[in-house]
């Protein structure tokens, strides 16, 4: 176990924990965009920067990637930290002027758009890579970032509807700005230019998963339970046989 100090509070966590995870244990809030508990850390949005003091030196590090160390002193709300976040959010305001999520974060840190980036069509993608990681880690890896610089964008191979997409929607679920469009209507799910038939939960009858997903997970259609029913079933298993 490792003991460190965050904003003057002592916390003891297992080795390998990140500063961000340790801070959340203390209910110390650190804003993040590219981080997602279910995905491997990436450290690309630089919003979670915190100031650490180690061997008498102070510096900024990305808390979502930085593993805790014994005696580490962390400050999450210094003026340097706020400045770093303001800078990142200013750039993001330029990149995604239409994003409400970014606007809200920017307002919190008083970040203004720099207005120096070329004008033009702007989408909601902040290039955080969450969708790509979700697809890679939980599904087929059918989407990725293609091209580079200004042209960099997330899409299926050859800019087409990804052939390997199983319609699980994990990408849309983890997207922090709602860039990835997913539509559910009449028992169908539309995503990445493809249409998927939704199978029904065997308990409540809600259409919720695609057949392709089922095949990918190696599950049988018979005992399909949506997330709510699965939770209820799991909870019920504790009381079964108890009287």
């Amino acid at each position: 176990m490792i003991t460190l100090i965050i904003n003057g509070l002592k916390v003891t966590v297992p080795e390998g924990t990140t500063i961000l995870e340790a801070a959340r244990r203390l209910d110390v809030e650190i804003p993040t965009l590219c981080h997602h508990e279910g995905l491997s850390p990436q450290g690309s949005c630089r919003l979670c920067m915190v100031e650490i003091e180690q061997r008498g030196r102070r510096r900024l590090v990305a808390s979502c990637m930085f593993p805790v160390a014994e005696g580490l002193v962390v400050e999450t709300e210094t003026e340097t930290v706020a400045g770093a976040r303001r800078f990142v959010l200013g750039l993001l305001r330029d990149r995604c002027p239409r994003s409400e999520e970014i606007a809200a974060l920017a307002a919190r840190y008083g970040a203004k758009p720099f207005g120096r980036l070329p004008l033009g069509e702007r989408d909601l993608c902040i290039h955080c890579d969450r969708c790509v990681r979700a697809c890679e880690e939980e599904a087929t890896g059918c989407i990725a970032f293609s091209f580079r610089g200004w042209a960099r964008r997330v899409e299926g191979p050859f800019g087409e509807a990804p052939a390997d997409c199983i319609g699980c929607g994990a990408c849309a679920q983890v997207c922090p700005t709602g860039f990835i469009a997913v539509e559910e209507e009449g028992g169908m799910r539309k995503i990445w230019g493809k249409s998927f038939e939704l199978l029904r939960c065997s308990a409540c009858g809600k259409p919720f998963a695609t057949r392709e997903e089922l095949v990918f997970q190696g599950l049988d259609e018979g005992d399909l339970l949506c997330d709510r029913c699965r939770k209820r079933e799991f909870a019920a298993s504790f009381t079964r046989g108890v009287r």
């Binding site: 890896g141 059918c142 990725a144 191979p157 052939a163 390997d164």
Partner: peptide, 8 residues
């Protein structure tokens, strides 16, 4: 490897 990676 996924085709998306090759294209990337």
């Amino acid at each position: 490897v996924p085709e998306s990676r090759v294209f990337a």
